[in-house]
Simulated scan of single mutants.
Amino acid sequence: MLDVFRGLKNLIKVNYVHIDSPVFRLHYSITVILLISFSLIVTTRQYVGNPIDCIHTKDIPEDVLNTYCWIHSTYTLKSFFNKKVGVEVPYPGIGNSREKGREDMSDRKIYKYYQWVCFCLFFQAMLFYAPRWLWKSWEGGKIRALMMDLDVGVCTEIEKKTKKKLILDYLWENLRYHNWWAYRYYLCEGLALVNVIGQMFLMNRFFDGEFMAFGLNVIEYMESDQEDRVDPMIYVFPRMVKCTLFNKFGSSGEVERHDALCILPLNVVNEKIYVFLWFWFVILGLLTFITLLYRLVIIFSPRMRVYMMRMRFRLVRRDNVDTIVRRSKMGDWYLLYILGENLDSVIFRDIMHEFANKLNHNYQHHIHGVPDA
C-alpha cells in the first residue's frame, strides 16, 4: 500500500517560509493530499477488489456483463428500501420491479457516479490548490527575499546589521504601499471559502442531491432505531444493485432481455471517503469563514492589530507596536506580521524597535518643520 503513496511525497514537503495562515495551508496541503490519496485508493483493484461483480447467466460471458453494467450504470428501487430485509426483499432497494404488473421507471434510483469518482476527486484536489497557486504568483517571493536567512539568528554582527538595514530601508521606502499586496492574499482566502462551499454543491449535484445533508443523515441514522430508517450510506452507496437491461438476440432471432444482480465492492470504500469529506469540508468551511471575519476586524480595527501583534510577538515593546500601527497602514502591519512569523524573534524585535524609532523621528521632524499658522 505504501508504494501507492510514494508519488505524493513531493506534496508533503515542509516549507519553512510561511506566507499564509494555518487555515489557508489546510486547503492546499492536507486537503489536496487527502483527495489525491483517495483518488489513488479507488483505482487500486488489488486493495479494493473489482469495482463491480455481477451474477450472470451462462449465455453471457462474465467480463462482458460486468463491463456492460459498469459502463451503462446500475439502479435500485426506492420503494424497496423501506421493506424488511430477508422477508420482503433480499437486500435494501432490490426487488421485482414488475410485481405490480408494470415497470415504474420513476421508482428507479440510477447510479452513474462510481465511474467518475477517481476523476472527480483529482479535479477537486486541483481546485483546492488553485488559491495557493494564485497567491504564490502574486506574492512573488517577497517574504523569502526579505528574510535573507535571518530566520536563524546565528550569524556575524556585521552581517546581521547589514541585513537588518536592508529590511528597514525596504520598509521605509515602501511604507503605506502594501495594502494591495495584503488584500490580494485576503482575496485568495475568500476564494478558498468559495471553493469549499462550491465543492459541497458540486458533490451534491454529483450524487443527485443526496450529499448536502449526507453527514447529518448519517448521524441521525446512527442515533435512531435503525429498523425504522433507511441507512443513508446504503441509499447513496449501495453494495448491491440491479443492472440495466442487457438485450441480445436469442437462438431463434428474438430479442432476449437479461437483467443482473451486481455487487459494488468499491462503494464500501466510497462511503467512508465521502462521510469523511463531508465532515472535513464543513469544518474547513467554518474555520475559513471565521478567518475571514477576523480579516474584516483587522482591516477596520487598528486596536485589534495592536492586540494581535502584542499577543504574537511578546518580545516587541508595546510602545513600538502602537507607533507602527498608528503610523502605517493595514498592509504594512500584515507584512510585518508575516515577517515576524519567519524571522528570528530577537532580530524581529530589533527591527521593530528601529522601525518605530524611525517613524517617531520622522513624525517629530515633520511636526517641528511645519511653520506656525
Rank of each mutant, 00 (worst) to 15 (best):
R312T: 13
I12E: 10
F207V: 09
Q226T: 11
F207S: 07
S29D: 15
V297W: 11
N342M: 04
N96T: 13
Q226D: 12
V17K: 01
E88F: 03
Y235E: 11
L191N: 00
V316N: 10
I263N: 14
Y334Q: 07
V87Y: 03
I273K: 04
F206A: 02
I298F: 10
E210S: 11
H368R: 11
K164R: 15
I12L: 12
V255R: 04
F119M: 08
L187A: 07
Q46F: 15
F81L: 02
L335C: 01
Y129M: 09
G215N: 00
I60S: 04
W180V: 13
N179G: 14
R349H: 07
P22Y: 12
D332K: 03
M147V: 15
F119V: 09
H353V: 10
M148D: 11
P371D: 09
E189P: 01
R108S: 05
L277Q: 05
Q364Y: 15
D3Y: 07
R102K: 10
V241K: 00
P90G: 03
R318H: 15
Y91S: 02
P61T: 11
K136P: 01
N360F: 15
K136A: 09
Q364D: 12
D228V: 10
I12V: 08
H353F: 12
L166Y: 14
D350T: 08
E99L: 15
L284D: 01
W278M: 00
L216C: 12
A130V: 05
E341M: 06
D231C: 07
N10E: 13
D149C: 10
M240Q: 10
I197K: 03
Q124K: 07
K100M: 11
F80R: 12
G140A: 10
Q115G: 03
M240I: 10
K136D: 14
G215H: 00
S224T: 06
R318L: 14
V269M: 14
E210H: 14
I143Q: 07
Y294I: 07
F80C: 04
